[in-house]
């Protein structure tokens, strides 16, 4: 009967694909959510009362917005029911006005079915559905406007959760229909705990306590980026050190930053041009360099007048870089302006 045997038996069985640690260590329930205590305690209360307002989560990247709502959904419905009760839409789905009109409306229009008592014993399983609109700040204004009435009309059967980085990009009428939760940057302690936990689980050896701290500093407290970095670094070397981390994070080394400042302080125009050319050709990211220059210069001892001139230059340059301005010209401008500001 060899005919029926799968053909590829001679190929070696593959190890199950490992998922990235950011997905693997996403909190499974609200209890696991690191920090954000205030928000978690409010949400837990809603778990008990089985009543949920429309929600708007906002805050910087990597602070646990998506993780929290996914954990809440899991706690509310359990794995079985979650498939039918939760609709997750993000910017990778088309979310034009037509989608709001059809997909969201259709999903929220249907009434919820009965729940078996088995599930009800384990989970609160309230009588409404949940629509998660991730990255809501990328929705067009029209699509947001179309949501307004939908949210109210179907409030009986559906709750919305909007997630975004910039609350200012959500139109006011929509924001006023939701209770807002601001996700503050993770406290260093809780982020550290999480990283340490992952290190233990994955048998990652770090050089010393300081490494994880510097990792958080590198990523400005962005936990997701920290975990991604940690995973890549662990793949590189048996023992994770500070140097490996900063190399992988794409930050500009400190000696380059201080060289830029030095050349701006005492160098002439020709030296500035040469230094800028070298930095560009070495491929360093100008926006990253700008960040670091900003951190270094605005905390150093220079006159307030220079500082305000610098702040002005940096903000304009940042905008232009994000818009896709030429890095070479921009850096040249930044350094010459810095030179002038320092001499003022």
């Amino acid at each position: 009967m060899s005919f029926f045997k799968p053909k590829a038996t001679n190929s070696t069985p593959r190890a199950p694909t490992k998922v990235p640690w950011t997905e693997k260590y996403r909190p499974k329930s609200l209890n696991d959510v690191a920090a954000q205590d205030a928000i978690v305690s409010v949400l837990k209360k809603t778990l008990q009362s089985s009543n949920l307002p429309h929600m708007l989560f906002y805050g910087p990247p990597g602070t646990g917005k998506t993780s929290t709502i996914l954990a809440l959904a899991r706690d509310l419905y359990g794995p079985e029911l979650r498939k039918t009760r939760v609709l997750e839409l993000n910017a990778s789905d088309d979310r034009g006005i037509s989608v709001v009109r059809e997909k969201i409306k259709n999903f929220s229009r249907t009434a919820v079915g009965n729940v078996s008592s088995e599930i009800r014993q384990k989970y609160p399983a309230p009588d409404f559905k949940l629509i998660i609109l991730d990255e809501a700040d990328m929705m067009t204004h029209d699509a947001q406007a179309a949501l307004r009435r939908t949210m109210e009309n179907y409030a009986k059967t559906t709750r919305f959760c909007l997630i975004c980085n910039y609350v200012t990009r959500i139109i006011d009428p929509l924001a006023s229909r939701c209770s807002k939760f601001r996700f503050k940057e993770l406290s260093q302690e809780s982020a550290l705990n999480r990283l340490q936990y992952i290190c233990e689980q994955e048998n990652v050896e770090v050089e010393d306590e300081e490494v994880l701290r510097s990792l958080l500093k590198l990523t400005n407290g962005d936990l997701r980026q920290s975990i991604t970095l940690l995973q890549s670094a662990a793949g590189f070397a048996p023992v994770v050190t500070k140097d490996i981390l900063s190399e992988l994070a794409g930050v500009v080394p400190d000696n380059i930053v201080s060289k830029v400042i030095e050349v701006a302080e005492i160098g002439n125009q020709k030296q500035i041009e040469k230094a800028v050319e070298n930095i560009i050709l070495d491929g360093y990211s100008v926006s990253e360099l700008l960040d670091q220059l900003h951190d270094t210069l605005l905390t150093s001892v220079i006159s307030s007048k220079s500082k305000s001139m610098l702040a002005n230059t940096f903000s304009v340059a940042n905008r232009r870089l994000v818009d896709g301005g030429d890095e070479h010209i921009e850096l040249l401008n930044i350094v010459t302006q810095t030179a002038q500001a320092l001499k003022a």
Binding site: G62, T228, G250, L281, G283, S287, L321, V322
Partner: peptide, 21 residues
């Protein structure tokens, strides 16, 4: 060629590799 126009959430999901000239 340039990292600046790439937004933060994408950068935080990738491993950045700098290739100098």
């Amino acid at each position: 060629t340039s990292l600046s126009p790439i937004m933060e959430p994408i950068r935080s999901r990738t491993l950045l590799v700098r290739v100098p000239a």
